[in-house]
Design a protein around this nucleic acid. Structure first.
Lengths: 203, 203
DNA sequence: CGGCGAATTGACTTTTGGGTAACATAGGTC
DNA sequence: GACCTATGTTACCCAAAAGTCAATTCGCCG
């Protein structure tokens, strides 16, 4: 017989491919248990490999998180930036942003949750990385809110700030719902969101 | 001199009072770092006592979390239940619930965040306790959403479910905002919420 | 005052999980 | 076919954090 629990040895998988698999598994775990709750051993098991390989490729648990956050953050901020630049009428901004977000998240909806991990150690590079993307996303949301609500009598900057927070959490809510209904496609999510936003407006 | 780092010895504080202080400190830490990220030693330091006292009173880290969650969950669900029962017109339900929530959370806004910790071990009593209150709150939200949106053409149960999720996260958003603006009173939060909900409706 | 239970702690043990060392195998190259 | 590098594993180390022990002081009650 060929395999009898060999000790070490390549399986011929190129590093880039393996890295992708590791990040996919890690994103799920980070989203589910948070940074502090995640066990690197579990990620290894879930990716079908052994722990040291993760350390060879990512150096540390923090490095693993940073890689996840970086992949998630760049895709999201870039997609949303693009969508906001392409939008002309302010009434369409919200849905355009949602479309961009869901499209960017289609391969891994968990990515959004990863960025908003609350269990990161407050010092450390991981925290700074997540913070950077969160701030970027918050800025994008704030400008979106400003244009959407301009001329609606909302002047207090604190009100605008709170509205921004509500909008961000609305995205979180939809992503959470998506995670519990994985059979839904990004397009279906967009349609549903349009319907829901309309219903809320006409309440 | 009186004190020179004595080893042991009562300070005359009644158990009930001390327990309250411990829970207060723990709630802040649980909210900030999550269950997995929290260090019992840190809670002890922050409460001005030593670690073994926490273990004497709460048995384990899990016990400590459960106590926090129980205190938060009962206050919240009871307050919201009361508010929903007292509300007659469906248009007022949302604000009535927010008023109840903010009132219940006034002493410790962190409590809301504690209940939605994502870093709890999925087995274990702590998870079950949090889950119980989350389900209860979700039920309350769902009935509120049903009555608020009845006769607005929303029939798909999935839509209603997603709306419920959005509503819950709206509360989370407002609580998060509150945590970053601790100088605001519950009344101010309620007023602001009324204003914001109005602005969203008239978008 | 003497002693008993409740409050409290320094110092310890145990466990968990991040991180590493050393070794093993596949697959291409000269 | 020998060798080098990239991929991979088992078995271990160790720091930090959960959890425990034994002693110590306080306040009260007879």
């Amino acid at each position: 017989m060929a395999t009898k629990a060999m000790r070490g040895g390549s399986k011929g998988m190129p590093r880039a491919v393996r890295e992708g698999e590791i990040l996919d598994a890690a994103a799920v775990e980070f989203a589910a248990r948070g940074f502090a709750g995640l066990s690197v051993l579990e990620v290894a098991r879930s990716a079908g490999i052994s722990k040291p390989l993760i350390y060879r490729y990512y150096g540390s648990k923090e490095g693993l998180y940073i890689a996840c956050a970086e992949r998630a953050g760049t895709a999201l901020t870039a997609g949303i930036d693009e969508a906001m630049r392409a939008t002309r009428r302010p009434g369409e901004a919200a849905l355009a942003v949602l479309r961009a977000a869901f499209t960017a998240l289609e391969p891994r909806p968990h990515d959004w949750t990863v960025l908003y991990d609350r269990s990161l150690p407050d010092d450390g590079e991981a925290h700074r990385t997540a913070r950077r993307y969160r701030l970027r996303l918050a800025e994008q949301a704030a400008t979106g809110i400003r244009t959407s609500f301009s001329g609606h009598g909302l002047t207090d900057p604190l009100d605008l700030d709170a509205l921004t927070q509500i909008w961000m959490h609305t995205v979180t809510a939809l992503v959470d719902w998506w995670l519990r209904h994985p059979e839904q496609s990004a397009t279906e999510m967009i349609d549903r969101s349009r319907r829901l936003l309309g219903a809320i407006r006409g309440l």
